[in-house]
Design a protein around this nucleic acid. Structure first.
Length: 341
DNA sequence: CGTCTTTGACCTGCGC
DNA sequence: GCGCAGGTCAAAGACG
């Protein structure tokens, strides 16, 4: 998976902003208009900064993923031990084209398995090992994506707030994972064929692995909500608007299952400065970095930035829900896109 | 009372 | 054909 953020990320937000400014002078109260515009500018600036921080987070994720891949390649015995768990179910594992990622799909993304090109699309995952009822052709056509949600360690629920409404229709304890797997159907079923499986990761019980099968044929509930109450100044609206152009329009249909990791844990940082403040401070640096790439910044700053970003994103439950909804909804609804990130 | 969740039973496909 | 395992169904209970 590539975390390539499109360069035009934020364009949508800016367009909205400019339109809003144009409408401003038409309002009867100029002061109120000015205050609103000022507030909008402030929010837009914060959105922009959050965008940058998300870029940093994604790049760090890639770096971490590379480290994991290196570790995998250097420690094949661990992979073998992991693979033995599902040794009795080699139906699809034997057709696997990438064993290293398959054996560790609970830790990292395994979406490099290519549905179209490499044949068995979900050979890497035990999640889909039993979904053999459908004809192979139909299975390949179905859009499968995987989202990782980090939750509280003591949170035993299998509920993933992605913005859609789901109806649980089953729960099963699978052989390769002591944690039960919950089966959900979209509440719009049978008109909406989307199904979702949620199970905790073997490696990290605090990580919920949600596997989406199919795509929604109805608008995202959060979008409907926002469209009907777009005047609301809540952070949820801000988040959804800003993330409406999140590059989570990841290629799901053309390059196999897509995986996104969302950290939904509560903030633990005791830092006093906010992310915005930190960025602002850095922007005031008398010796500005000519390289806009955040990865060139000091490692301490990067670490702090990530912590603060997670803090900011998880401070508000509604923000978390909106973030998860926007991201998951975006890539689930994305039919045609050539971008991978 | 309607909706949702739980959970045991059943169905289906695959390997042997 | 049998056993295994994942996926689904549907009745019963919980809940607002």
């Amino acid at each position: 998976m590539l975390f390539l953020l499109p360069l035009n990320w934020g364009l949508q937000k800016q367009e909205v902003q400019s339109n809003f400014i144009e409408l401003g002078p038409k309002l009867p109260v100029k002061e109120e208009t000015g205050a609103l515009v000022e507030e909008l500018n402030r929010v837009s600036a914060e959105n922009k900064k959050l965008t940058e921080m998300l870029t940093v987070l994604c790049e760090n994720y890639n770096a971490l993923r590379n480290h994991i891949m290196e570790y995998i390649s250097k420690n094949p015995e661990n992979i073998d031990n992991n693979s033995n768990i599902t040794e009795s179910r080699k139906r699809k594992a034997e057709s696997t084209t990438n064993n290293t990622e398959n054996a560790n799909n609970n830790i990292i993304t395994n979406n490099d398995a290519n549905i179209v090109v490499n044949g068995p699309s979900e050979s890497s995952s035990s999640d889909e090992a039993g979904s053999c009822k459908k004809p192979r052709e139909e299975h390949i056509k179905s859009k499968i994506s995987r989202v990782y949600f980090r939750t509280e360690a003591n949170d035993t629920s299998l509920i993933v707030k992605d913005g859609y409404q789901w109806r649980k229709y089953g729960q099963k304890v699978t052989r390769d994972n002591p944690s039960p797997r919950a089966y959900f159907k979209c509440s719009f079923a049978p008109s909406c064929p989307v199904k979702k499986k949620v199970q905790r990761s073997v490696e990290d019980q605090s990580i919920l692995v949600a596997t989406y099968d199919g795509e929604h044929n109805h608008p995202h509930p959060s979008k409907m909500e926002n469209s009907s109450s777009s005047h609301s100044p809540s952070s949820r609206c801000v988040a959804t608007t800003a993330l409406g152009s999140v590059p989570c329009s990841t290629s799901v249909s053309t390059s196999g299952p897509t995986t996104i990791t969302l950290d939904l844990t509560k903030p633990t940082s005791s830092s006093k400065k906010t992310t915005t403040q930190l960025v602002e401070e850095e922007s005031r640096n008398p010796n500005p970095n000519p390289n806009p790439n955040p990865m060139t910044r000091a490692p301490e700053f990067q670490k702090f930035l990530i912590e603060q970003m997670a803090t900011s994103l998880t401070k508000d439950p509604s923000f978390k829900a909106a973030l998860a909804a926007a991201i998951s909804g975006k890539f689930l609804q994305s039919n045609v896109t050539d971008h991978k990130w």
